[in-house]
């Protein structure tokens, strides 16, 4: 079994290459989302007649979605903790729950999108909705990417022999998942509350 300690010993930095690569990737992702969020803030500050959601955003639904995403961060870190205890069944269970919660987030986002479209609200409606659809759209795509990664890692847990050498991937999937959670932690108040 390739343990974490063994992997660490193989690199000059003391950090497994996969983990180092994931952190570098996340650093670039921080810049990507900061660019989008900064554009939103600058547009908003420079527009004296900012249109806003005008009652078309449901704070209860946004709150529920935020709770779901926070819950999924808890479940994926519990999956990692279970994996470190070699509790494969618990790892699988927590990871499956993470995927269900992530899919629920996207499902609720889909309900919100369809409600907007039913009210003839599109990205071209005004500058607020352009920002809303771009920010939540890119975030949703990242959630979809995270779900795919989590599903891939889950599929690895069904093979005891391959899991032993691939358990490191769960930590990488977790890092990515927590990152998309952090992005939403900022998007939710910016779009729904302020």
């Amino acid at each position: 079994m390739a343990s974490t300690a063994h992997l660490e010993a193989q690199t000059a930095t003391g950090v497994p290459n996969g983990k180092l690569g994931m952190w570098l990737f996340l650093a670039s992702e921080v810049m990507f989302f900061t660019g989008l969020i900064a554009a939103y803030v600058v547009l908003r500050l420079s527009n004296p007649s900012w249109p806003g959601p005008e009652g078309h955003l449901s704070v209860p639904l946004g709150t529920l979605n935020t709770l779901i995403l926070i819950g999924s961060s808890v479940t994926i870190v519990l999956a990692l903790a279970a994996s470190q205890r070699n509790a494969l069944a618990a790892t699988r269970g927590w990871l499956l729950l993470t995927i269900v919660l992530g899919a629920s987030f996207l499902g609720i986002k889909g309900v919100e999108y369809s409600a907007k479209f039913a009210h003839e609200i599109f990205p071209s409606t005004n500058v607020f909705w352009s920002c809303y659809f771009v920010l939540t759209g890119f975030h949703g795509l990242h959630i979809l990417g995270g779900l795919s990664f989590n599903l891939f890692v889950l599929s690895r847990t069904f093979h005891q022999t391959t899991w032993a050498s691939q358990r490191q991937r769960l930590e990488l999937a977790g890092l990515y998942w927590h990152f998309v959670d952090i992005v939403w932690i900022f998007l939710f108040p910016l779009l729904y509350l302020l």
């Binding site: 930095t13 003391g14 950090v15 983990k19 180092l20 952190w23 570098l24 996340l26 650093a27 670039s28 921080v30 810049m31 900061t34 900064a38 961060s73 870190v77 977790g174 890092l175 927590h178 990152f179 959670d181 952090i182 932690i185």
Partner: peptide, 27 residues
């Protein structure tokens, strides 16, 4: 809270915390 405890920056190698902080300086 998420970065320090769920992403383990609080207990992991300092190099990773520096990578996480680098974009913040640029921001």
């Amino acid at each position: 809270l998420v970065a320090l405890y769920y992403m383990h920056l609080e207990s992991d190698r300092r190099l990773l915390a520096m990578i996480a902080l680098a974009p913040l300086v640029l921001i």
